[in-house]
Amino acid sequence: METWRLLRTFDAEPGFNMGLDEALLEGTDERPTLRLYTWRPAALSLGYFQRLAELSPVARAWPLVRRLTGGGAIHHENELTFSIAAPLDHALYRGEVAESYLRVHARIARVLATCGVVAEPRGARRLDSDDDTSAMCFHRSTSIDLAWNGAKGVGSAQRRKAGRVLHHGSIKLATSALEGPIATVADAGTSLSPAAFAERLVAVWEADGTTFEAEEPSATELAHAQARAGWFSSPAFLERR
């Protein structure tokens, strides 16, 4: 059994969400941390290198933040967001980035299976949700993305810094205003709140051999998140590209 730290921070403000993930990335805890969270208000996050101008005017009207991780824009609505922060030499993240995705996605697929969803890596096929003209993460796919019903249902991206990794992911429980016909847990007729899906995830990972120690963010992490919250939605960061 391996012990992980577990944080549940639901309905947090978008900038705070990014600030807390930054605190976890820059942290020193040797235990991997799994953070499960949601956003209030619902917001749109840009990838670290994504151009703000790629977003449609409709998308830009939502509360915006820029992530530390790469990839496309995500509309954080009707989803469970997760982040994993761990040392880069952890067995989940050692070696090639693509292999680490496959390992994390395999764990998520086992949770989705309990909802009646058969999620698999996309492989070589093209998805119905792919749209080369869209700035949205769920409209772009790679061979290692999790898909079902011919569409992408989990978006994820990593940041690697100073020997640690931050892995962001969005698991869609239902679609959002900006993402349209993507794969969701609701497709399988399973209607779950983010909190209910989070408990399933924890239960499945525990059954797979992980012991979770549920904690609150530390005072240091909270102070970091609060101090940095404004930066992630600031014009200086949003308009960096």
Partner: peptide
């Protein structure tokens, strides 16, 4: 010190 960043399809990494 970090002097730059590189992005692949799935990860952003610091350059030191």
């Amino acid at each position: 010190e970090t002097f730059g960043e590189i992005e692949s399809v799935k990860a952003v990494a610091d350059l030191n």
